[in-house]
């Protein structure tokens, strides 16, 4: 019975894709790259795992906020440029030398929340599309970043290293970087909040049926505002972590990251239409996309293939997620009209 329920869990298909990919990569490396010598397989070594996790962490933190936004029926295209903006501003403020690191961190957090509150205010008070509104904000942040930095890279080498560069060595090989620790702690807390609090249940309710949520006593407008505020908090944390890890702030640090983040969330099983998804799916989605460039590197394939591979993985994951959500794995159904394969609501099979 337990096994059956596990198999029906929303995250099972994507987890299987992830594990399948690990196996394939290991097999290819073992047989073709290491000539059958299993001892030399590098892919699953603690050191490599630590590196992959570190590369995934910032996108992962952003994906947590995006998961909340998307389950509740919204979307935010501005995250990437906002990371550039807040990250560059962090570097800029540290370089002026008038504020200490704590004041800068506090300021960036408050600013991050305010930025998203402003956008959330427009989105929740109007019927305008979050897609377009956040697209506008994306451009605004991009401009602000260039204005702050003058288009240059602002180095903070040697300062503000705690968030990005400190780490805990579990074994000499397996080192958990601070970004990874922050990411995992946030995943666990948001996971618990989504599952065990009223707030969590309401995120899903608002995303699935706004009307019914409103009539069930949820102040939908303020609720959406709250979600964007949380998103702002997470973006601020991610931006500072990235600036700290890179030791610099520059206009390109977050560029294009919104696409990675949305891809991770969608691959993780969150519906673009809202009402469905969970944070552990997002974790797997982020990991799945994160290992691609690492795997190609180890297998000695040109790194330029990574974008092609990532696209293929996104499409495969979404197809599998869709097929499993309708409870069939026949490819034929994929090409039938949606209506025809939905179970009859009056006479369920």
């Amino acid at each position: 019975m337990k096994v059956k329920r596990l198999l029906k869990h929303d995250n099972t298909p994507i987890l299987l894709v992830f594990l399948g990919m690990l196996v394939v990569v290991v097999l290819i490396e073992w047989i073709f790259v290491r000539g059958g010598d299993f001892g030399r397989v590098a892919f699953l070594r603690p050191m490599n795992v630590s590196n992959v996790l570190l590369q995934v962490a910032v996108t992962g933190i952003l994906a947590i906020g995006m998961t909340l936004v998307m389950i509740s029926g919204g979307i935010d295209l501005s995250v990437g440029q906002m990371v550039s903006f807040l990250g560059t501003l962090t570097a800029f403020l540290l370089r002026t030398g008038t504020w200490n690191a704590y004041s800068v961190a506090l300021f960036i957090i408050v600013l991050g929340v305010l930025c998203q509150l402003f956008m959330g205010f427009i989105i929740s008070r109007t019927t305008l599309e979050p897609f377009i509104i956040s697209l506008g904000f994306m451009s605004i942040y991009r401009g602000l970043t260039y204005l702050i930095s003058g288009g240059r890279e602002l180095s903070i080498h040697g300062q503000f290293t705690f968030l990005g560069q400190s780490r805990i060595n579990i074994t000499p090989q397996l080192r958990l970087g601070m970004p990874v620790i922050i990411f995992l702690l946030l995943i666990i807390s948001v996971g618990l909040i989504l599952k065990y609090t009223k707030f969590g249940r309401r995120v899903y309710a608002v995303g699935n049926n706004e009307n019914a949520a409103f009539l069930a006593g949820i102040n939908v407008r303020d609720f959406k505002l709250l979600i964007y505020a949380i998103n702002g908090l997470l973006i601020a944390i991610a931006s500072m972590t990235l600036a700290s890890r890179l030791g610099t702030g520059n206009p390109l640090m977050g560029q294009g990251r919104e696409i990675e983040v949305i891809a991770a969330v969608v691959v993780g099983g969150t519906a673009l239409s809202g009402g469905k998804g969970n944070i552990y799916g997002t974790l797997i989605g982020a990991m799945l996309l994160g290992i691609i460039s690492n795997a190609l590197n180890i297998l000695g394939v040109s790194p330029h293939w990574q974008f092609v591979m990532r696209g293929v993985v996104i499409i495969i994951a979404v197809v599998i997620g869709y097929l499993s959500s309708i409870g069939t794995f026949s490819l034929k159904t994929l090409f039938k009209s949606r209506r025809a394969i939905e179970p009859d609501p009056v006479n369920p099979a």
Partner: peptide
Amino acid sequence: QNSGLFLDHPLDKNIPIASYAKTATPLALP
């Protein structure tokens, strides 16, 4: 369907949702 139910959610997520407005605790234990 449009204003009463969360169609894609199961019964145990539909039935308690309105009563959350009346309880003081922030928790909603599955």
